[in-house]
Design a protein around this nucleic acid. Structure first.
Lengths: 190, 190
DNA sequence: ACCCACCTACCTGTAGATCGGTAGGCAATG
DNA sequence: CATTGCCTACCGATCTACAGGTAGGTGGGT
């Protein structure tokens, strides 16, 4: 097999870490609880990831790989794929919760994920601008350019996630997202 | 004086707690560091707030009082006041950071602020719907109702805060918010 | 005389990390 | 072929550092 036992172990650990971080955030997560989930001791876990921060970094890197491969190609997303992504997320509260918790923590001082998110959001905004340009051209409703609308699109996705995580029954995340896209499409009826 | 020394102390402590939570989140904040900031020992602090959670609750309650008094009256916000609020927030990264960090944490399991935020967002959405109805009537662009647009408005505010906190130089939070309002106003030019 | 506003001392728990192993596999070597 | 040696994958014990919380004070103001 191409995949060694060790690589499998690492993958298991990352999956477990994702879960634990979703439940407790990074600061609240303990190496012990991650280890327990994969049938290791804390010290055994540290054999694979030498520090807690290294584990977090690995989690973030894996997310990045996922984002950069599945569903996205060199030309970036298309708007309907974004819509599918939101629908997909609505079925995976765990993953959404992990990254929402991490995003929230990351704004605190010296958080190890801060640089990651800062960089990533710059990329995401650039991507969103491309997507919008591809879909709507240079001029959007309200006189917006794709660059001006990109932070809004990004903000809506994130903001909706928080509302949805807090109260899934009251917030139709995919529906609301589609609503926003309709706003951007500029069906100007009043 | 109407305000007793003890009440002043509490207010000081709450202010300090706000700062520390902004810097480290709730889980990362320690009673000791809050105490230090007001020239107390950790145990001295516990004299005023018997547990860490009690302190958090007090912080949240104060925020609620602030929200419910300043700028908002029985009829709720108006849209231009919301705009001012965003501008005001853009000058107070500390407060924004506190509540963004708390919101992020609150989606994790058993977080003491979770109920607070869940309830609060329901209120906020209802309020936003009122504001939108007052400003735009029943029909918004894209065929939206005020109720459908309210989660979007809320999401934009929160989402922009994260982007702005991570990279203030790259995100013009008030400007972006105004852009969104323009979308809602439905100036349909393309 | 009493209470309020604290403090010192202490306890308990927990978390991340280090140290020093051990057991098994595998390859080179005498 | 067996021994030696080394590498990987762990575990137990332990260290250090806090963190939250308790118990029992002390001192000053009313």
């Amino acid at each position: 097999m191409a995949r060694t036992r060790s690589e499998e172990r690492r993958a298991e650990i990352l999956r477990a870490a994702l879960e634990v971080i979703a439940e407790r955030g990074y600061r609240g997560a303990t190496l012990g609880s991650v280890a327990e989930r994969v049938g290791l001791t804390q010290q055994g876990l540290l054999h694979y990831f030498p520090t807690k921060e290294a584990l977090l970094v690995a989690v973030l890197e894996e997310r990045d790989r996922w984002d950069t491969s599945g569903g996205r190609d060199r030309e970036g997303w298309r708007l309907d794929l974004l819509e599918s992504l939101v629908e997909y997320n609505a079925m995976r509260p765990g993953i959404v919760q992990t990254f929402s918790a991490l995003l929230g923590e990351s704004v605190t001082d010296g958080h190890p994920a801060r640089a990651f998110f800062t960089e990533r959001y710059a990329q995401v905004r650039a991507n969103m601008a491309d997507v919008l340009r591809l879909e709507f051209g240079e001029r959007l409703p309200g006189g917006l350019t794709p660059e001006r609308a990109a932070p809004l699109l990004t903000a809506v996705m994130d903001g909706l996630q928080y509302q949805w995580l807090l109260d899934p029954a009251s917030v139709d995340m995919p529906g609301a997202f589609r609503d926003f896209l309709r706003l951007l499409a500029g069906s100007a009826e009043r």
